[in-house]
Amino acid sequence: MTERRLTNRIRMLRFMADEMTQADLGAAIGVTRQTVAAIEQGKYSPTLETAFRIAEVFGKPLDEVFQWERES
């Protein structure tokens, strides 16, 4: 089985959303700023529900926010 990892574009999407802060995004989806930071850094994989909430905040489909890529 090919090893895959979850990556995301949250940092870029926050930048494009008027430099939304991690705290603001956290408040919008119901997690702490540190949890948003951990998700951005790939240290924590969010639940499906939180992933959808993040996508909803940015008005993007889920696969534009999160990608499931093959590890190089």
Partner: peptide, 13 residues
């Protein structure tokens, strides 16, 4: 104050 609040999903994990 977050120490006394409801843990978020990462805390629970």
């Amino acid at each position: 104050a977050e120490l006394w609040g409801k843990p978020d999903e990462r805390d629970r994990a």
